[in-house]
């Protein structure tokens, strides 16, 4: 059993290494979602830049997705070791603020140029995107022209969706229909229901099935098209822009009241809206930067510009989300 002993020792050493104190530089703990700090995410590119600016060490802690972050914050409460949380989106900000754990950021967001006015005192936006249906042009000749078209007639073409109970794009589509159709959203859902091939747990499964050719339409982002054009050099997959408008997702960061390093945290939030950070966003997170002049021309060409930007107020979302999910469940046939 010697090799087993060695393994235990190895594991012990790793545990010790993990527990060893970092260098003397102050440490800023940032909670985020895992793909943000993965190899191709913005994390590895922006971390050294900020660490040099602040003379500090950034410690990323990554959990699942935006909803995972919110639940982590709520569970940890005022004992959270986090200084900053990065990666919540506008469908969750009201609830995050309501926890009373977020401190006003005090950051100058003058450089932020979003299609909507930004006056949230708690959160700093660091990127945004538009939900859109991606269309596989080799599997379907004519794509739907509008949301109304999507909800009209028969059970073809098949669509891949995400579940609003478990995924932020899923929640996004639910809010999209709500912002366009209001009280009548359920009727539109009933029109879409027969076309739904499946409603997956997260974007990962839905998009994977889409690229495997299971269905010609999937709920994703307009910027998905930019990825296929720039990285895979293919025009096969296109984002559909609808006349009713496309729903926005604004990703934000905020600092915690309990932070031990409030000045560093603020400096980090300010860094998010700087050119150094914004330039990295488009081709790493495949989202749109929130300041002007950070989008590479090729990227701007490859991601279609929506005709109208839709976004419901965060507090309205927080107030009605549970009821709207119930309505959705009934409409698509629970």
């Amino acid at each position: 059993m010697r090799f087993a002993t060695r393994l235990v020792l190895a594991a012990g050493l790793i545990a010790l290494a993990g527990a060893a104190p970092a260098a003397d530089a102050p440490k800023l703990t940032v909670y985020t979602y895992s793909s943000f700090v993965a190899e191709w995410g913005p994390g590895p590119k922006v971390t050294p830049v900020f660490e040099q600016q602040c003379g500090c060490k950034v410690e990323w802690v990554a959990f699942g997705d935006g909803a995972g972050l919110l639940s982590k914050l709520k569970l940890e409460g005022d004992k959270s070791p986090a200084d900053v949380v990065l990666g919540l989106d506008t469908s969750l900000t009201a609830e995050a603020a309501a926890t009373g754990l977020i401190a006003p950021h005090g950051v100058d967001t003058g450089a932020v140029k979003l299609p909507i006015a930004w006056d949230d005192k708690n959160f700093v936006p660091f990127d945004y995107g538009y939900f859109a249906f991606m269309w596989d042009s080799e599997k379907l000749k004519t794509p739907p022209k509008s949301l109304a078209d999507l909800a009209a007639g028969g059970d073809e073409p098949k669509i891949l969706l995400e579940d609003p109970r478990t995924s932020t794009p899923g929640l996004g589509l639910m809010l999209w229909l709500k912002s366009v159709y209001g009280e009548k959203a359920a009727d539109t859902w009933k029109g879409i229901a027969p076309k739904i091939l499946t409603v997956s747990k997260s974007w990962d499964e839905a998009y994977g099935l889409f690229t495997k050719g299971e269905a010609p339409l999937v709920l994703s982002y307009t910027t998905s098209q930019a990825y296929h054009v720039m990285e895979e050099k293919t025009e096969r997959y296109k984002a559909l822009v609808f006349p009713e408008g496309n729903y926005m997702q604004v990703e934000v960061a905020g600092m915690l009241k309990t932070s031990q390093h409030p000045d560093l945290a603020r400096q980090f939030l300010q860094f998010l809206v700087s050119k150094d950070f914004q330039m990295v966003i488009p081709t790493t997170n495949w989202m749109l930067p929130v300041t002007d002049g950070a989008t590479p021309p090729e990227f701007a060409m490859a991601a279609p510009q929506p005709k109208k930007a839709l976004l419901l107020p965060a507090d309205e979302v927080a107030q009605h989300r549970a009821a709207w999910i119930k309505e959705w469940l009934q409409a698509v046939g629970q």
Partner: peptide, 20 residues
């Protein structure tokens, strides 16, 4: 959630999330 701990399963999910 430790950033330095990425096993193959998590790597796989991160790759999918990055369209890879």
């Amino acid at each position: 959630g430790n950033q330095n701990l990425t096993n193959l399963t998590l790597l796989l999910y991160n790759q999918i999330a990055a369209y890879r």
